[in-house]
Design a protein around this nucleic acid. Structure first.
Length: 669
RNA sequence: GCACCCGUAGCUCAGCUGGAUAGAGUAUCUGACUUCGAAUCAGAGGGUCGCAAGUUCGAAUCUUGCCGGGUGUACCA
């Protein structure tokens, strides 16, 4: 039995006993992991809760320890239980039968549910405006989203990953203004520039990064240029004209660049839904009609918002400057982002009654396909997968967009009350900001006031930010130097591959170790570190584990060791595992067995950091285990077999945990 | 004004639905490479969990108030 199964059995036994012996119904039974192995493998603080309930029901005051005694007698009858202790004021501490547990879990899959299909879940992440290169703030979004979808898959869910392309928004319009009215370039000229850039090893999205910042600066001084923005935006939204064609080229090229950046980090998508299709395939019109009929929005005929369609928002009141209600349709008839997102989310949930057209976009190096939406029906080779229609949808979006996301959620819930607000989940996360020192390191002049601030927000408009590709390049270069110093004999290709794996591990772990609602104040030293709580540390631990198994001969292989353990008396194993030095062997085994439980906890709490922390703890525990036990050199046959089996449990669990974080284990490092 | 987030070791952060002696990393100091790889391990010092009340057998965790920092409240996204 796995830990999860054992917990389930124990919980229901406690619940039944509570009902039978004390007449109390207890809805949820908390199970804890004791702070130390010496205190047990699972702890139930349930006796305190029961004492309280009994007092409420009968007025009778019972001692928690006496209640725990009754539960103890019941739980002791299970064969997987070694012993039970009542500790402190009434903790019920359960100790597993160690030899039995190891024998049963030695060869178990650390993630038993992965791959078992169920109702589909849609995860939207990345959704970078396609007008410039991605910076590390965008990468936090993508890494969180990608890791979360991996976590969901590890719990057995079927997941579809979408990256929304806002190809008709203001930000794309700004770069288009830059190309057309600052650079005076036609579409042909831009294509020529693109070829030129590619030829000289530069990238289109970097060029746009600088151009976008320049447009932002020019707007401040040039009113005429600023007036072009609305014009251009209108033409892009309308489509079927030269400006729209130019914008489409610019946006698509940026999408390609951003997808390349993300692929460097093992982040891939199934579908790229575009905003232009939301408009041209009349998704909004349909959602708009439904909301009008249901009365969830209304037309404002007077006041500040006269001429607009708005959704009321009572949760917080407006002030002198702003109304509390949210505008979905502007007085000029155009739709806001929030409005379009309502239509998009309805499609994601399969309640819109319309579908996109699809075009094959790209095959990733690993064989995965990514599709993009299209205004017209396309001739595709092979079948188009079925997109959208998720049972639950997760939207990985900056916490600064919490307010419009609440509006979207309310709109969707109003149209589909039976699905309700639980169907759409905003996976919010705090921004990645720069320390004043980091901003200056990037060459930005700061005012004295700025220098006193706790952090400086990154800004695409100002061109202030750490570009993702730059950081990955720096990480790879640094890792390569380290690999070079340790494995000078390896081929260049091999060394580069390892350096790449280490860079990905470092960056992904760095962005995952913080919980979602922590602002990451970016620091170059910390982000570029390979020591301490880093991805590299976890990878190193796994690499060491693997090197042991490469050196084990046939008679000591994992399979032989498992056979040897099964053949010997359990008392013999118990003698080792229950001895003083054996306790940390057991600690290693039980910790390695908690991956499945941890992945479920991370999925339930929508918090990938829980898994990152566990992975680090596991790696640390293995390093200690590795230090304290000489596995290959162990003289005692049974103990050696036990060490091999436990080390194997640890490395498989560590490898699976890292894989769920999107981090590979190098061959050597 | 209103809504949301944060305040825990010098610094950066964990702390699960209230539970056992509040933990990591980093920095500082000390020790360990003839070994399955030292990108590692061990040890030491370092805490009024912002402040104050309340609920409870029990509070870093829940409630209220205050102080300090941040974000949002756009006919941007």
């Amino acid at each position: 039995m796995t830990i999860t199964e054992i917990q389930k059995v124990l919980r229901s036994a406690i619940s039944e006993t509570a009902k039978a012996q004390f007449g109390v119904d207890i809805e949820s039974i908390a199970a804890e992991t004791p702070p130390k192995t010496e205190l047990g493998d699972i702890a139930f603080p349930v006796a305190f809760e029961l004492a309280k309930q009994i007092k409420v029901a009968t007025g009778e005051k019972q001692n928690p320890r006496a209640i725990a005694e009754v539960l103890k007698a019941r739980l002791e009858t299970f064969d997987f239980v070694g012993k039970i202790e009542i500790a402190g004021p009434g903790y019920l501490n359960v100790f597993f039968d160690r030899s039995k547990f190891i024998a049963e879990n030695a060869a178990a899959n650390p993630l038993p549910n992965a791959g078992t299909a169920s109702a589909k879940i849609c995860v939207e992440h990345t959704s970078v405006n396609p007008n410039k290169a991605a910076h590390i703030g965008h990468v936090r979004n993508s890494v969180l989203g990608d890791t979360f979808q991996r976590i969901l898959k590890s719990t057995g869910k079927q997941v579809e990953v979408q990256n929304y392309i806002d190809n008709t928004g203001v930000q794309v319009a700004d770069v288009v203004v830059g190309f057309m009215f600052i650079q005076n370039m036609t579409l042909e000229a831009i294509k020529g520039l693109d070829t030129e850039l590619t030829g000289s090893g530069q990238s289109f999205d970097y060029y746009c990064w600088d151009l976008y910042a320049r447009v932002g600066q020019e707007y401040l001084a040039n009113e005429e240029l600023k007036s072009k923005r609305a014009e251009v935006l209108h033409l892009i939204e309308e489509g079927g004209n030269e400006t729209a064609e130019l914008a489409d080229y610019v946006a698509t090229r940026n999408v390609e660049c951003i997808l390349n950046t993300m692929e460097r980090l093992s982040i891939r998508y199934d579908l790229l839904p575009r905003e232009s299709e939301i408009l041209h395939l009349h998704f909004w019109d349909k959602a708009f009609e439904q909301m009008k009929q249901l009365g969830v929005i209304h037309y404002e005929s007077e006041g500040k918002q006269a001429g607009c369609w708005v959704m009321p928002f009572e949760e917080h009141t407006g002030d002198d400057d702003n109304e509390g209600d949210k505008i979905l349709v502007r007085s000029n008839g155009t739709v806001t982002y929030t409005g379009k997102d309502i239509a998009y989310q309805m499609w994601k949930l399969g309640i819109l009654g319309l579908d996109f057209n699809y075009k094959y976009f790209h095959k990733y190096a690993n064989g995965q396909d990514v599709w993009i939406t299209s205004p017209q029906v396309e001739q595709n080779e092979g079948a188009i997968p079925s997109f959208g229609g998720g049972e639950t949808i997760y939207n990985v979006i900056d916490t600064r967009q919490s307010y419009p996301q609440e509006v979207v959620k309310k709109g969707v819930a109003a149209i589909s009350p039976e699905r309700g607000e639980k169907a759409s989940i905003h996976l919010a996360y705090e921004m990645v900001a720069l320390s004043p020192a980091a901003a200056e390191e990037l060459g930005f002049a700061l005012s004295d006031e700025d220098r006193k601030r706790p952090f400086i927000e990154m800004s695409g408009r100002k061109g202030l930010g750490v570009k993702a590709d730059d950081l990955i390049d720096r990480l790879e270069a640094k890792a390569l130097a380290e690999v070079e110093s340790r494995h000078a004999d390896a081929t260049d290709e091999e060394k580069q591959h390892i350096a790449h794996q280490l860079a990905v591990g470092a960056l992904r772990y760095f962005l995952l170790k913080f919980t979602r609602n922590t602002v990451i104040v970016f620091d170059f030293n910390e982000a570029l570190s390979f020591e301490g709580e880093t991805g590299c540390f976890c990878q190193y631990s796994a690499v060491r584990a693997n090197s042991i198994f490469r050196k084990l001969d046939e008679t000591n292989s994992v399979e032989s060791s498992e056979r040897r353990l099964l053949a010997c008396e359990s008392s013999e194993i118990d003698a080792i595992v229950n001895s003083e030095t054996g306790t940390d062997i057991w600690s290693m085994a039980i910790l390695a067995s908690r991956l499945d439980e941890t992945v479920h906890a991370a999925a339930t709490a929508n918090e990938p950091a829980i898994l990152a922390k566990y992975t680090f703890t596991l790696a640390k525990a293995f390093n200690l285990f590795y230090h304290n036990h000489k596995i290959i050199a162990e003289a005692d046959d049974t103990k050696r077999a036990l060490l091999v089996v436990v080390a194997d449990m640890a490395r498989r669990s560590l490898t699976a945990a890292l894989d769920t974080l999107g981090i590979e284990v190098p061959m050597k490092m």
